[in-house]
Write a protein that binds this DNA or RNA. Structure first.
Lengths: 233, 233
DNA sequence: ACAAAAGTGTTTTCCATACACCCATGC
DNA sequence: GCATGGGTGTATGGAAAACACTTTTGT
């Protein structure tokens, strides 16, 4: 085994962000019309090139912050996309990330930065450039997988929320309805979900109890919870 | 949002392979001593640079084939590693892959290609260059996660195997023992695992029944199995 | 006869699912 | 008083987990 390299191994490295958000109770991604070549005018994910003095993770966060003005956003690497001809006329390896944006709280900032960026429901996407559709498909699968086992929902919920709100969110992401009583039973077993005692009267006559999420201190080997974390399906 | 780039976004793109195998009933990875700078003489994963005329996936496969002489090996992308200073003195973004190699059947080919490559148990690794230890940690977590839900075990088993052999393999990878009767009960529900009727007399006085794995034809929407696939934990 | 690995069932526990009615309130 | 969304409990089925002894045969 030998190692050698030359300019033949130098290539552009990019990041692309699949930014999920909720809009009108639909799961959406942030897209925009490219204002430059290649594929000017077509629909694209948000992306950019990685600079030599920043990590790939930082580049993804920079792209997201530049567009939304937000910094404390959940981001997760999805993987590298490295087909030779994924872009026409140049070789670009792209690392995709998915992000979760709490739209209802923050949509002002999103709209203000880029007039070209819009929320599009994932089930009615326009044709996209390059392999961006494939990236979204993978991100959606990853989101559905991860939200089942980790506290991702709370990235999409406001500080305080009703159980109905939380359930609707799951239903929107999964694409099918859940049983109300079973759902509340499982949430009831999660020690991180705390009843604030407050009531939200805006959504119904009766009013709904508002809950909040408090991250648990990471368990030490001695202080380990005896229950298995329950999943929502 | 603007896009621009220059040589400031051109960088080396590499692949690194975490090649798992079984040796003396221990889970091992293939390492080798670097024969070139940087870090000549230190322990490293197998890797190489991606050429402009090959996809990242192809580069990973080429590296693996060059070293082992094998082509039909299970490989899976783990993700991109993109810290600025993960290598000294140059910027390299690396995409890591993990691979499963059936050592007992194929160790001849592995040894013959590179004298410097050796199997090292994952629980007694030497210090490694760059972020290779982190890559192995992530690959191991991914392997343990994936082997629970997908037919990955069979990539590490020979054509025919006893149930004890299969169970030992799971125990080696998980790092803890499994209940024999529960294990055999679950394997018994897998239609892909077929009793060949043959007996292996080499491992015991009594002899063990040999099984084999037959991939099921992918279920069509009509011809769907009614049972959930069972997991091994 | 005994060592060494192969093989075999039952019970219990827990989690997921299915399912329908009363409550509080603003209008 | 009625419409609207909020809230509640029980019964069933299936999978996972715990658990110990008999079988075969080469030496």
């Amino acid at each position: 085994m030998q190692e050698y390299y030359s300019d033949n191994s130098m290539m552009l490295v990019a990041v692309d962000c699949i930014i999920f958000g909720l809009k009108d109770n639909r799961l959406c991604v942030l897209l925009y019309r490219r204002g430059f070549e290649p594929c000017k005018g077509e629909w694209s994910l948000l992306g950019g090139f990685v600079n030599k003095n920043e990590s790939v993770d930082s580049a993804a966060r920079r792209v997201l912050t530049t567009l939304t003005g937000l910094n404390d956003v959940y981001m997760q690497q999805l993987g590298a996309f490295g087909a030779v001809n994924r872009e026409p006329d140049r070789r670009v390896v792209s690392v995709a990330y998915y992000a979760l944006l709490n739209v209802s709280e923050r949509n002002t900032s999103v709209g203000s930065v880029s007039d070209n960026a819009v929320w599009v429901a994932v089930d009615s996407l326009p044709p996209l450039v390059f392999d961006h559709q494939e990236m979204i498909d993978m991100a959606l699968a990853a989101l559905r997988r991860d939200i089942k086992a980790t506290p991702l929902v709370f990235e999409l919920l406001p500080e305080m929320f009703s159980l109905t709100h939380m359930q609707t969110l799951y239903e929107t992401i999964y694409g099918y309805p859940l049983d109300k009583r079973n759902f509340r039973k499982r949430v009831g077993t999660m020690p991180e979900v705390i009843d604030t005692g407050l009531i939200d009267k805006t959504g119904s006559r009766r009013g709904a109890r508002l809950f909040t999420y408090r991250k648990q201190s990471p368990p030490t080997p001695e202080n380990r919870p005896s229950h298995k974390p329950s999943t929502i399906s």
